[in-house]
Amino acid sequence: MLELREVFLRLGDKQVLRGCGLRLSAGERIALMGPSGCGKTTLLRVALGLQAPDSGEARCSFRRIGAVFQEPRLLGWCTAEENINLVLSDKAETMRDAAFWLDALELGEVRTLYPDELSGGMQQRLSIARALALRPELLVMDEPFKAMDEALVLRVRQTVERSLSAAALLLVTHSEEEAQALGCRILRFKDGRFE
């Protein structure tokens, strides 16, 4: 379970989070929606343990957490396949897993290419493949379908939807349709707090 209680956070001069609370159990799917700069990404960072709140509490009991950030965060010196293997254990079957997830995200033909040889959309799909390959208990995604055309977004969304099974999902998006397609309960966020 992921639980945020009365989270306050100030970054520089700006009070970014103002008493946010959130509870996400296994299998539950939540989409955070709101205008740009309202603190959604900061809330995800607190949830992922990357940012400590000034006050309040952030607790997460999920052990395997997959994350898709706004930027793909790939290792430039590793191939697409090696980028997926990074999060898997160093066993032989990881190679098969990596190949499976690359195919699932339509990246099978670029498995030996390096990130700078891939388009922005491919890099983002690779980041999604890496998160799914972990078979996460919690998947956190921050505007994951950027830089992809509409038809591709549909296919990738279906792959994510099918792969989630019992995993919890915390999604940041600007698209209500996207949230609904992934079966998310929508929470509206504004000025550092839920509306």
Partner: peptide, 21 residues
Amino acid sequence: PQLLELARVYRLPRGRVLRRI
């Protein structure tokens, strides 16, 4: 630092962070 954050979220072992990042 973004890669180090990635390693933290995915709870990568220290040896792998040293070798790969």
